[in-house]
Amino acid sequence: MSRLALDETEELIRRGLRRRAESAPDPAVGIRTVLGAAPPPRRSRTPLLLVAAAAAIVLAVSIGVIVRPDAPAERVTVAAPGSVLALRPAWLPDGFVERYREISADGSLQTRGWTRPDEQGQEVLLTLLPGAEEMPETLPPGGERITVGEAPGYRYTVGDTALVTWTPDQDSTVQLRVTGVPDTSAAARRIADSVEPDGTARVHADLAFGALPGGLVADTTAVRGVSPADGVDEVRAVAPGDPGRSALSAEVSDDGPAGPGGTPVRVRGLEGTYVADGVATRDLSVRLPDGRWLVLRDATDQLTREQVVAVAEDLVIGEQPDHSWLGQR
């Protein structure tokens, strides 16, 4: 084993990146999509449905606490087993099972996902967003105006993916993305037409942040997996002013850290590992007494190791997450 010369390495990087960049798709399609898209929905604190409101209330206690930089953390007692999801599709193509649920801290943004285990690349994602999206004045090629129920909306098909967007009321927008399903556009329409209030499905990770440093705010809870046996629970926090990016996440699952390395660290009375150079994160992992792994990922580039350890210490980790729905219709 030896080393390339530095200038040789740099030249190879430049040439390689230029070549890689040349594989970017024709921008015409992207430009049409962007300019044809409606403005993003207005942010609204008012959830769409009563069940969404209920979700917000329940989630506020289940996701953890918000900690201001200048104030001590106030823990809220978990009062209900999970957060209620507002919508479900009454119809899905045969073979689809649910594998993903996510809900924001205020309950106003919810996502559910289904895939077909026996068919790679087939998936359905249903997302509830706060605020009514304004319908675009013009639609890009492949787009058409539709109504879902009595709600105005539009459908847009690109390749094997169909997107259906509609606004059931002035406070919410629903987006449906269907990929890889035969006759994708028609299937998406049928699924959209079948969407109905749920109010029974829940997200219960049994995991919540305690005190959070640096002004971070608990943001979303997600549960994912193929079956109840391999469920993964995750909570995420964001930095104020950058709500689109997960700054800190905590995950409990049967999977340990992906790579070797790191330094030993004592956390929750156990021997853990702290890796200061993960994938854009600093990762802390520790095996819990019940055999599951806790992995914290710090993408803030600002927290110290001690602060990350403190977050791990303060996490509320229950032993009864609800994975019963994973792999079910």
């Binding site: 993903y100 895939t115 994912r224 990016r245 993408a299």
Partner: peptide, 25 residues
């Protein structure tokens, strides 16, 4: 760039559920 760092939460359910946590890795 931030989207790239955080795309995990925006990836498809297929990626989120069926694949290890990082497409590039």
């Amino acid at each position: 760039t931030n989207e790239y760092f955080s795309w995990r939460r925006r990836r498809s359910v297929r990626d989120v559920v069926l694949s290890p946590p990082d497409v590039l890795t």
